[in-house]
Structure formats: C-alpha cells, structure tokens
C-alpha cells in the first residue's frame, strides 16, 4: 500500500500475545494498516480473526495479560510504548470507540445525562450549564427526539437502537478524528441497523471524521466504507478498495467468504461453503494459516507465511497463488 503522508493512524507490525498462564499464545501476527484522514475503512473477518483485538490493542485496552509489540503511530508518536497518561489523552479524544452491545457499555445505574456529562468534562473540560447544553445538542445530533427529557433517562428506559445512539453521542463528545465502531449494529434489528449506519454516514459527511467499521457482515461494510481489510487468523490477508473486493477478490479466503453468502436477488445458487474450520490461535498450521482449507494449496503454502504482495497501488494480498 502506498505510504501517504495523510495517514492519521498507522499500525506497523502490531502483534498481541496473550499469557494464558501456561503458555503464550499469539493472537495478532503483525498487522500493517493505515487509516487516512476522513477515510472509511472496513475490517471484516470471522470470530476470533483479531479484528476487534487490533483496535483494543492499539488503544491499550487489552489489560495486563496481553503483550503488545510493533507500533501504533498517531501524529508522530508511538502509542504502544506511551505512558497511560498520554493514552488517556488519545482515547475518546483523538480516537473514540463504540461496541456491539450498547447497553453493557453504558452504566446501568447512572442517567444518560450524567454519563454524557462525564465524557464532556473529561474530553472537553465542559461543566455545568455549558455541559448540559452540549449534551442536549449531541443527543439531538444523533437523532434522539426530546433530548432534554432523555438526559434524565436510565439506559434501561431506552431501546437498543437508542442506546447505540447515546454511545455515538458520547463518542462524538470528544470530537474525535477517528471513530472505531466494533460491530455497532450486530445486536440491532435490520431497520434500526439501517438508521444507525445512515447516522454514522451523516456525521462523517458533517465532521470529516474517519471511521473504522469492524464487522462480520460484508454487506454492511460494502455500503459504508471505501476500503476493506479482510482478516484471517490474526493477519490481514487482503486489503483493497471495496469494489475490487467484490468484483475481483484475490485471496482464496475472500473469494470463499463471498461464495458462502446467499444473495437477496437474482437466481438462487447453491452456496459454496469453505471446508473445515478456523484454526485455534494456539494451534495454527505451518505456513499460510488458510492453507488447510484452501483449494489452491500447493506444498509451498505450508512452507512459509506468505508476505503481503501488492497487486495494484491500493490492493495487496497475502497469498502466493492469488
């Protein structure tokens, strides 16, 4: 991938090892990834592929059992080696994150207004009336009607979709340059998902904020991002513009994912599943992790991990037989 000067965040060789007490298991095997200013980037893959861990690690949110290696560059500094006080200035302020289940991300015993107020105090230093007014404006911004009254509600009084809107409002409180949305609509119904994705697109248009959308759903990513990274077993296997991924996917795993998905229109075709299962992180096969499930496998695939090969300026793939 071209190393542009407009990179907002760049991850270089990011690794994560978990200490299970008995042994050390590597969950992330060197992620190279760049998020440009204002860009919408999708991160797709199946459960356990490391798509969430990548960003939890980048923001230092993984806890003491994780050992993080490599670099996370934001504005010339490396977050991996940065002290906690520096990280606290980044989290929520430069890079905000929202998660799949909004009701467990919100504190059930505090009113929405108090939680939003806390974010505004920490990130913007707003207090009292100014904070109240800003909280109301943010709720209004995320499409919650009657914002003044809603500030006095507890999370359980709101629906899942409304709680996700509150989470987005809290994320916006710090006016971040990048929002990392980890499966933000997976727990929501289809029509509510459409509303939330529309809201995120609208906010991006207004503020120029960059978005990393983590999802297992290629459809969600295709409609809402410009570029997508496909992850498998702790590595990025393909990185390409969204149309390229759908029209001419290069990695056999990306092709397999597309063939396994049914369509909503057109003739019905038999689904082609990917044989086998995702390997355990503690028990990866030698060489390419996808090799045992791949129909294009040759002996060389099992000999060494394939490096990322550029196929075009904005397209790279980690496969020796694309």
């Amino acid at each position: 991938m071209a190393q542009g000067t407009d990179a907002l965040v760049s991850l270089r060789g990011l690794t994560v090892d978990f200490d299970t007490g008995k042994r050390i298991v590597r969950a992330l095997h060197g992620i190279d990834l760049e998020v440009r200013r204002g860009e919408a980037l999708g991160l797709v893959g199946e459960s356990g592929c490391g798509k969430s861990i990548t960003w939890l690690a980048a923001l230092g949110l993984l806890g003491g059992r994780a050992r993080i290696g490599g670099e996370v560059r934001l504005g010339g500094r490396n977050l991996v080696s940065a002290p906690v006080t520096d990280l606290e200035k980044v989290r929520g302020r430069r890079i905000a994150m929202i998660f799949q289940d909004p009701s467990s991300s919100l504190n059930p015993v505090h009113r929405i207004g108090r939680q939003l107020g806390e974010a505004l105090r920490l990130h913007r230093g707003l207090q009292g009336r100014a904070a109240d007014a800003e909280a109301r404006r943010l709720l209004d911004r995320v499409g919650i009607a009657d914002a003044g009254r809603r500030l006095g509600d507890f999370p359980h009084e709101l629906s899942g979709g409304m709680n996700q809107r509150v989470m987005i409002a809290m994320a916006l409180a710090g006016q971040p340059d990048l929002l990392v949305a980890d499966e933000p609509t997976t727990a929501l119904d289809a029509t509510i998902q459409a509303q939330i994705l529309e809201l995120l697109a609208e906010i991006r248009r207004d503020t120029g904020m960059a978005l990393v959308l983590i999802s297992h759903d290629l459809g969600v990513v295709s409609e809402n991002t410009e570029r997508v990274c496909v992850m498998y077993a702790g590595r990025i296997v393909e990185d390409a513009p969204i149309d390229t991924v759908f029209d001419s996917p290069a990695h056999p795993y990306t092709r397999g994912l597309l063939a396994a998905l049914p369509e909503l229109e057109g003739p019905r075709r038999a689904l082609v599943p990917i044989a086998g299962v995702v390997p355990e992180p503690s028990n990866l096969p030698p060489g390419c992790s996808f090799a045992p499930r791949c129909d294009r496998r040759i002996p060389a695939c099992e000999a060494a991990t394939p490096p990322a090969i550029p196929l075009a300026v904005d397209h790279r793939v980690a496969c020796i037989r694309p």
């Binding site: 289809a190 029509t191 998902q193 459409a194 994705l197 290629l218 409609e223 809402n224 909503l264």
Partner: peptide
Amino acid sequence: QALVSAIPTHARQKRRRTVLPGEP
C-alpha cells in the same frame, strides 16, 4: 419493502434506501 431495503448488499451500494422512521 423497508425490511428488504434495509439489507445492506454490495449490489445496492449506489442505490438509495428507504430508512424507516422510528422503532417498532
């Protein structure tokens, strides 16, 4: 109509979708 339109697909990428107001 709204339910079908809410399903994100690559084919629909350029098309306009109808977003239902409110919640059930």
